[in-house]
Design a binder for these strands. Structure first.
Lengths: 341, 341
DNA sequence: CTTCCTTTGCAAAACGTTTTGGGTTGGTGT
DNA sequence: ACACCAACCCAAAACGTTTTGCAAAGGAAG
């Protein structure tokens, strides 16, 4: 490794003091250095390939320009990747970099990983969950800028961002109503999580808003995976006056519904329309026909979270906010007009 | 923020000098501090909740304890998550932390992101790709510990780790042979990448090793996504003496094969056995029946890469190595004995 | 009692920046 | 010619560690 070029080398090469170099490079507003000199210094620095040592400047300024991102899981779905990517892009735009750490469900491990982040003097941490849920913030994050990503907590003083579950469901169901469906079923999740309740509310809202009466037999509940979706869909679609369209809790459930439809000899979308939630491309694109679904805005949530935390860091004092981001409809081929009865 | 407790506070509280504290905490071998004192200091430090400032120690030691991980994409599949997770786990075990950065295909962006990593004085960088491919290492990484993850390059001086494609295919095909198949088809990828060639070689090896003659009509090639898999599988399975088992380039291709089989009224695995490669749980678990497949060892590759790079950092000079990691068979339900002819 | 180790602890320098309080230069008003 | 002021630049301190070179204390040998 050729000895790294530091600010002193630049100073020497430019024939000025290190102070002047520092001012020339960083502090654009001050008039402590003549514009001409500044220009010169910048040029010399560039030619020498100077890059500041952030350990040193971080130490001096009490600001590392590093953000921590702690997430529970990262490997099951591509969601985590999208959140991380969003966070990184936003951080990059503002000169920061993010340190990702994940702890599984092990709170002891989480504790020590947060401690590592703090040893590296992160300026703030984004505390992320893989799916929308309520959390309790670890003690040791108190007193440090923090925002929740895909999670909420009851402390109104801390900012958070989650998908707007109600809106997601409304969007999905309205895509069905728009093409003429009135007998719309829903396959919901059994778990007691925000998505379950929010998506049901959105389902109900959409029907009511369009004056459609809800048939209670058309609501079924099951485990939110493909097998669960298959079984509940089989039940639902075997009913005497089965729905002509299905709003599924997730894309995986929707995949189960595809299997059920196929097993019953129903064609999609000619005999039955299906919409999901998640926009897992791996599934939605692979199904045949492609699955129309609403996307959870993981990328955007990641961006939102770090922009918010950087705002908090750069000028503190703004009241916390709890954001819910909209979920856009992604149309593929699984929605069509209801069959003539 | 209560003023952070530093080494001086510990020293004062323990009634010794900062030197002594530093020796007591770090340097376990030296006899510069009496065991008793060491014990005392450690206790005081713990009680005060002391945590070292790594910016400061990094600056002093010229070692940040940070590893960079640059990857091309992160959001498409869960693969990236698994690699990152493996890298983090390994780093954590050895007191390091990893900074993830991803650049898409934009080399200009990549350039600047690597520069960021270097400004943060990363001790080494893992250069990762989402799927096994040849790469050219960016200029600016020269002279810094580097290992390739899921990628190879022609410079034999740098270490790399990739899946053993040949072995993966052999494992998959032998799972078919083991239960009695002899008419085995393969749906390969069109792209000119290592996986394409390696998996074909493995396919051929396995057949030859078991004295099975290969029928050239049973090799088909198509775009390696679900639609491609569906179409090529339709061709293959419509042949007069169709194979009784299919080795698919990937799980997505296998999903297409499922769709083709269903369309042709073939049951899996009674009429046709199918095996894939990737172990994308999102797909393999969701198919019905579950897809038997070989797993690409992303997690293990991530671990391998950072262990290797930390070895290089901690005692340099060991010759580089190019590792190929084995791919275990994951059995679900898509393989059965061939139908009685 | 002196000399010479050994053991233990301390003060200070160094890492690469940023920033404060002065200092130097050269020009302007009287 | 004198004081004064702007404009520019510099030396030095500080951030929190680690480590080096010394010094003090205590014990053993002569």
């Amino acid at each position: 490794m050729t000895t790294r070029v530091g600010i002193r080398e630049v100073a020497r090469a430019a024939g000025v003091s290190v102070t002047t170099v520092s001012h020339a490079l960083n502090d654009a507003t001050s008039f402590r250095v003549k514009a001409e000199t500044r220009q010169h210094v910048r040029e010399v620095a560039r030619n020498l390939g100077y890059a500041p040592n952030r350990l040193a400047s971080g130490l001096r300024n009490q600001r590392s320009q590093i953000l921590g991102l702690v997430s529970d899981e990262i490997t099951t779905t591509p969601f985590a990747g999208a959140m991380i990517r969003g966070a990184q892009d936003a951080a990059y735009e503002r000169g920061y970099v993010v340190m990702v750490v994940n702890s599984g469900l092990d709170t002891e491990l989480e504790h020590r990983e947060i401690s590592m982040l703090q040893q590296h003097q992160v300026d703030g941490v984004v505390y992320a969950r893989l799916y929308h849920q309520g959390v309790q913030l670890p003690q040791e994050l108190a007193g440090m800028p923090t925002v929740l990503l895909d999670a909420v907590t009851d402390d109104a003083a801390i900012s958070s961002v989650v998908p707007d579950e109600v809106n997601a469901a409304e969007t999905a169901v309205e895509a069905l109503i728009r093409v003429g469906h009135t007998r719309i079923g829903m396959i919901n999740n059994v778990d007691d999580i925000p998505a379950t309740h929010g998506r049901f509310d959105g389902f109900r809202n959409a029907l009511r808003r369009h004056g459609i009466e809800r048939d209670p037999r058309h609501l079924v509940i099951g485990v939110a995976d493909t097998a669960g979706g298959r079984e509940t869909a089989l039940d639902l679609l075997s009913q005497p006056d089965r729905p002509t369209a299905l709003f599924c809790f997730s894309d995986r459930v929707a995949m189960g519904a595809y299997q059920a439809a196929t097993a019953l000899g129903l064609r999609i979308p000619e005999d039955i329309s299906i919409v999901g939630v998640d926009n897992l491309e791996l599934i939605a694109d692979a199904l045949w026909p492609g699955l129309t679904t609403v996307a959870l805005p993981h990328y955007e949530m990641g961006r939102w979270a770090v922009h918010r935390i950087l705002d908090d860091i750069e000028n503190p004092g703004r009241p916390a906010e709890q954001a819910r981001l909209a979920c856009p409809l992604i149309e593929r081929g699984s929605v069509g007009p209801p069959p003539p009865s």
